[in-house]
């Protein structure tokens, strides 16, 4: 069984990292999507499935970190509604 704190900390790092997207749309999408996925699997008890999802989330966290860097390299003006 995965510890609750471990999952929560992964969730928090993903949100924290997504907040750094310079693009408003990517930032908002990532946060909403991550929140949705973690909530959808809150009651998941299948351990193999849990491990698979955690692995996927870690891969996604690394992807977000790389893409945040790219997004910060070429920033544009903010959107009118930001």
């Amino acid at each position: 069984m995965l510890s609750r704190t471990k999952v929560l900390s992964l969730y928090k790092s993903m949100i924290k990292e997504s907040n750094k997207f310079s693009s408003y749309n990517f930032r908002e999408y990532a946060k909403k999507r991550i929140k949705h996925e973690f909530e959808a699997n809150k009651q998941l008890n299948d351990q193999a499935k849990q491990a698979e999802l955690i692995q996927k989330a870690n891969a996604n966290l690394n992807m977000i970190k790389r893409q945040v860097l790219v997004s910060q390299l070429y920033p544009t003006e903010k959107l009118i509604i930001e």
């Binding site: 749309n25 990532a30 992807m63 790219v70 544009t76 003006e77 903010k78 959107l79 009118i80």
Partner: peptide, 26 residues
């Protein structure tokens, strides 16, 4: 003179490249 960008509601013309897609391409 563009200070702020308009919101984008022209998804049928083209869509932004998803960061997951760019990550695979780079």
């Amino acid at each position: 003179n563009l200070r702020q960008r308009p919101v984008y509601l022209d998804a049928q013309a083209t869509s932004p490249v998803d960061p997951r897609v760019l990550d695979a391409m780079l």
